[in-house]
Each structure stands twice: as structure tokens, then as C-alpha cells.
Amino acid sequence: MIVLKLNISRIASIPAAFVGATIRIFLDLALDGGTIHNGAWIAALLSALPSIPYLLCLDAVQSDKRMAIPLRFMLLSVTALDAAHVLSICVRAAGCLTLDYVPAHFLALPLALAVLWCVWRNGDAVGYAAILWIRVFPVLLLLVVTLQMRHYNARWLLPLLGNGFPDIIRSGVRASGWFIPATAIYYVTDRSGDKSGRRPLSAWLSFAPAVAALLLILRLMMAPAGLYGLTWEARLDALLTNGRAPLYLQLPMMLVFFFSAFHLLTCECFAASALLQRLAPALDGRLCAAVVTVACTGLSLSGFTVTAVDFIAPWLYVAVAATAALSSLLQGAPKGGERPCNG
């Protein structure tokens, strides 16, 4: 018997997707994508361009159609993999702070349990929490900016193009790929109550790269790009310690970082669990969430995600967008079966 059907209303899924996409683009360009360069914020803005056709496809594809199964499977794999990667980011960040003596599985376990609990609360809870975060985030960001104000240096944004156009385009395409797992939550939205004329997801999510770009500009003005860019830990340290600001001012930045990452992780885990339930409707939502969370935790602790994410990131956009386009086309093609014959 199905006790929990994982679903999310549209009003909750769009903010969740927005928060997820913003944070994912930021994390990719500021932490994961190798040395951060001055053009990172331009890359964030550029990532919107290839994403829009994908998001339009996502608006068009009806998740309950059989033709969406390949896309569903693809999204599930990518979202679960990225959730595992975000989990490992959180664990590594916690270790980098003061818990470096704690084994990674001890750090991953409480977070995995917390995420499991949150997913069990179902999609609306996750989405409404994202709305709450959208309200609180600017307040904390304002605090960060105020504390850091004297240390920002606009000259560190120069040279504007950083390592040049090829690097910006490469980063932009890579960042646009992260729209896919971050917005997967929209794919499992309950659209039964949708009214025509409502603004689609693509319109809302165009803001996500802009916000990510703003955050990257702030980050780039904290410390010169490349100064701390040698290792992932150094980049994280530069991000959390506000560059040159006194250490005690980094508290709000740490709160912003962890809460944002937790929201992204929960959105992705929820989306993956809901996708799994769509693929295997006989499974209870609680079981799906448990399977996904355990799988993500295992993947994250195996260390596989870092190399896997690095490998798939440049191709992610092309692969999933092609599948989405194919699903969309096949749905639109005239055929018998489910489609009514009244034209």
C-alpha cells in the first residue's frame, strides 16, 4: 500500500528549482569548475542561453506520458549523482572548517538523515522551505555585504574576461548543464491544477543565472581570482572566510553557504525520489526516499562523484537536453494509443 505519494505543488516547485539552480551554478563556478576566473560571472549569465530551450522543453513535456520514461530515467540518474556530489561538498566543507578529524561518514550520516526526514515531509515542505530561504537569504547576504563592505575591491574584477572567451564559454556550457538536476524538481510537479496563462518555469528561472552572477561578482571582489585557486579547499576557504575580512565576520557567510547547500541537496534528493516513484509506482514514497538517500550517501562517501561529476559536467547539457527534446518531439507526433482521435 502506498502511504506516501511524493508530489509537489507548482507554487512550491518553482522557488525550489530557483534556489537549486542559483546555488548549483554558483557552486560550480566558484568551487567545482577548477580555478575561478574573472569571467565566471559572465559565464553564469551565458549559462542562461542554452538553458532556455531545455526549460521550454521541460515546460512542454508532460511527466505522466509514457514517452517521458527515457527522460525520467536520465533525470533520475543525473539528479541522484549530483545530490551525492552536493552531499560530498557539504561533508568536505564541514571537514575543512573544524571537523577535519571526524571521519567523513560521521559527517555524512546526520545530513543524510536530515535530508531523508525533509523528503518524507513531502514536496510542499521542501518547496515552502525554499520560499522561506528566499526571504531570509537577502537579509543574511546584506549582513555579509555590510560586514565585508570595507574589503570589497572592484578592481579585482579586472581583467573582465579573465582567461578569455574560450574559458567563459566552456564554463557557461558546463554551468548550464547544472540546470538539469537542479530543476528536476519541477519535472515532478503536480500540474493538475495549473491554469493556462501562468508564467512558465523558464520565465522564472531566467533570474537564477543573474542571481548567481551577482553572488560571483561579490565573491570575486573579496579576493583576487586565482590567488586561492589552487585547490578546492583553498577556494572554499576564500569563499567562507570572506577573503581578507577578519575571521569572526565569516559566521553569516557560513550560514548562507550551508543553508543554501542543504536546500539544493534536499531539492535534488526529493526530485530523485519522486522520479524513482514515477518509474516504479508500486514503491512507497518513504522507501523511494530512503533508497535515494542511501544511494547518494554511498556514492558520496565512495569518492566516485568528484571524478564522475568532473567527467560528465561538460556533456551534461547536451545529453539531457537532447533526451528532453526527443521526448518532447515524440509526444507531439500524431499517433494512436493514448492520444484521443478527435484531432
Partner: peptide, 8 residues
């Protein structure tokens, strides 16, 4: 877990 636990 310190601040990490606090945030969780």
C-alpha cells in the same frame, strides 16, 4: 557537529 550541526 558545531556550526555544521547547528545548520542541520
Amino acid at each position: 557537529f558545531g556550526l555544521y550541526g547547528f545548520c542541520i
